[in-house]
């Protein structure tokens, strides 16, 4: 069952600039419940504009966004309700921390939903267990944490609303490798614990290969591919033409193939690459 459906979405920024350009033009796609959708695209391709429609931060100039089959703009006064169902984690979410303690900051979202008392408390403790915010951090100021920990807390702040769909805008940007791994793990853990649908914008094809089930490729405000990860990454030349690329390991295996070595070209993750290399070595040994 599709949880989100975007129909002919167009958004034009009303500016007094001479270039009237659609930031997003006539985009349609559906997101199935429980899947992980990756959105990739060059800078300025309309990814961020697109996802801000999913929780009603932006109103489509034309077209519709349906959540569980209902138009989210059906009743504009109730638009705030959709925001607890479709969570949106912005780029560098640590810059939105403001409370005195980590606990209070994570509580901000659920409180806005009207939760309080024991329910609020148990909700926060549960989410902290899932994303690994240590109990001793709870009474600390969020500003005393390291960059990676701040981001973990900020992400927990959105997850605490327990959205059915959670959207991440470049969740790993600006983190060190360990921090990136942590964020990816948080996303996976949250999904496992709640069965939520996940949408991720990323510039890292490697992250996408590990995480996503499906990929949506944006170019200059248009949707140009929407397919499984394998199918999208098998169109490397088209991706390169719009300033994107395939994961490094995929490129390595394409080179190997070009050198005349009999390898599978559809390798997207390091794990798959290791297995494929093992297979080849085993084959060599047999020959």
């Amino acid at each position: 069952m599709s949880v989100l459906e975007v129909k002919n979405l167009t958004h034009t920024y009303s500016g007094n600039t001479p270039f009237v350009n659609d930031a997003v033009s006539n985009v349609s796609f559906t997101v199935e419940k429980g899947e992980i959708l990756g959105i990739i695209g060059h800078t300025g391709s309309g990814k961020s504009t697109l996802v801000q429609h999913l929780n009603g931060l932006l109103k489509p100039t034309d077209g519709q966004v349906l959540f569980s089959g209902e138009d989210i703009w059906e009743n504009p006064k109730e638009i705030r309700k959709i925001r607890s169902k479709v969570g949106l984690v912005f780029q560098y979410p640590e810059y939105q921390l403001f409370e005195e303690t980590v606990y209070a900051d994570i509580a901000f979202g659920p409180k806005n939903m009207g939760l309080d008392g024991d329910e609020l408390d148990s909700r926060i403790k549960e989410i902290c267990r899932i994303v690994g915010v240590k109990p001793e951090y709870m009474e600390k100021s969020p500003f005393d944490l390291s960059g990676g920990e701040k981001r973990r807390v900020a992400i927990a702040g959105v997850m605490a609303m327990r959205p059915e769909v959670i959207v991440f805008d470049e969740p790993t940007a600006g983190l060190d490798p360990k921090g990136r791994e942590n964020v990816i793990k948080i996303i996976k853990d949250y999904r496992e614990a709640t069965g939520a649908t996940v949408i991720i914008i990323s510039h890292s094809m490697e992250d996408m290969a590990v995480l996503a089930d499906k990929l949506l490729v944006m170019n200059k405000g248009n949707l140009c591919m929407f397919d499984t990860v394998e199918k999208v990454f098998s169109r490397g030349n088209e991706l390169r033409a719009i300033g994107l690329n395939v994961p490094i390991v995929t490129r390595v295996f394409a080179e190997l193939k070009a050198m005349g070595i009999d390898v599978n070209e559809n390798i997207f993750t390091v794990e798959a690459a290791v297995n494929e290399l093992k297979r080849i070595r085993a084959g060599d040994g047999n020959a």
Partner: peptide, 13 residues
Amino acid sequence: EKIMNAQKARGAD
């Protein structure tokens, strides 16, 4: 604007 959007996404009214 960015911060406003981020807090709105967390349900700020």
